[in-house]
Design a binder for these strands. Structure first.
Lengths: 239, 239
DNA sequence: CCTTACTGAGTACGCCGTTCGCAGTCATCA
DNA sequence: TGATGACTGCGAACGGCGTACTCAGTAAGG
């Protein structure tokens, strides 16, 4: 067995004895991330991934105990490679930078929104990022519990908003329609809701709100909401 | 076919002609919700659900075009049955009540955190709830776009936080371990991270923060974060 | 150089969502 | 009333999934 009932991060990649593996965790992870990004996470099966890598499906289990572990590797990989933000010393600028970076990364890798939640998967890159974010609010006179609340609150907003942004796009993809077609399928029903006369505010949303698919709208909504969240967090600081 | 390329909400439940169906959408949905709550959403397959209902698996496709539609029904059902909050006229109290109600509902039905995201699935109950939440901030002098930002920001926080709260619990469930056992599997790795000496703040989180599985801690984190978000949102109000 | 430990992978098991075709049922209309 | 035709329930089957087993082949340690 390549496994050892432990966490993958402390399991050695290569065994002490025996022939050299023909692949590496990194290669496998990179291929899986590429597939997930271009064809959706559901297209990543152990079989399709094995084909992509030119090996047999069962061979992948020499590198990974379960598919879940592969996904943990994927999340940690993009946390290291694709998440960009700057910690310069001003807590608000730093948290804003982190938030925008995490949102951008999540939009590039939609599957992260769901599979990257919580403190479940503390791979080395994830741990490093977590440490960096905490450092942005260290030394401000907060207890560690308060710092946790700040980070959790910000993270919850980012992940929740990204999930909302992605949900339409993902369900359009899953149904095989493009986003325009998908909206046209929904339109008659929304129209009938409105015609009923209840839902006056929903009606205003549909008619008066800025083009619901203005590509800037969601980005603006994120940025505006983010500043409000940061406003709120600033109330936690002493002084 | 029972289908018609449309949205399920405007598709009649019973056909005009032919024998009466032996089930109803409501029965099917209720059984699926019960299964998902007690055994996890992954345990809900068309086959197991059919067994539970005493029918053949293929029969369910007389009521639902695809499994996704069943999940849409499930989400809308709990939005109607299990989501409780009060709109009394004070916007902050009302949004707090909504937030706590949505969190509590999500903890009772963990699968909602993922499958209820976005404006993808606007079933009648979901639409009614949406309308109610908007009404809580109507008449405060906000543009509809600003109202949207408020609701989206709050919703993002709630969904993101619920997702974080559930992630450990869910991954423990998936691995077949109970939560205590699962933590003991993780412990050596976290210990080794800490021993490395990098991650001083992570170390403080592990050692100094209140018992990470104090059942109240997550609830407190939610309530504290919620008040900060509400603080931030109050900055959007005119005057 | 032999022993030993490990690698690659074909095969198989038991699931899954979904489709097809058909027998049985019932509302409608001649 | 009886025939028609739409609709229901569903057994069987298809293609795909995660994963376990088994075993031949290979390379390092003694």
């Amino acid at each position: 067995m390549s496994s050892g009932r432990g966490v993958i991060w402390e399991r050695p990649e290569r065994a002490a004895r025996g022939p050299a593996p023909s692949l590496s965790r990194e290669e496998i992870t990179a291929a899986a991330v590429a597939m997930a990004d271009t064809q959706g996470i559901d297209a990543v099966s152990m079989r399709t991934l094995a084909v992509q890598l030119g090996v047999g499906a069962a061979s992948l289990y020499r590198y990974v105990d379960r598919k879940d572990e592969l996904i943990d590797l994927m999340v940690d990989a993009v946390m290291g490679d694709d998440l960009q933000f700057n910690i310069r010393g001003d807590w608000r600028d730093d948290l804003r930078s982190f938030a925008r970076g995490l949102r951008a990364m999540t939009l590039r890798h939609p599957w992260v929104a769901v599979h990257g939640a919580g403190r479940r998967n503390l791979g080395p890159n994830t741990a490093r990022r977590y440490e960096q974010v905490l450092s942005a609010i260290d030394g401000l006179g907060l207890e560690i519990d308060e710092m946790l609340v700040m980070v959790e609150t910000l993270d919850a907003f980012i992940r929740g908003h990204s999930l909302d942004e992605l949900s339409e796009q993902e369900s359009a993809r899953r149904s095989g329609l493009d986003q325009e077609e998908w909206m046209q399928v929904q339109a008659p029903y929304v129209q009938s809701l409105i015609n009923g006369g209840h839902y006056p505010l929903l009606t205003r949303v549909v008619f008066d709100a800025r083009s619901p698919h203005d590509p800037h709208r969601l980005k603006n909504s994120f940025d505006l909401g983010l500043e409000r969240v940061l406003d709120g967090l600033s109330a936690m600081l002493p002084g």
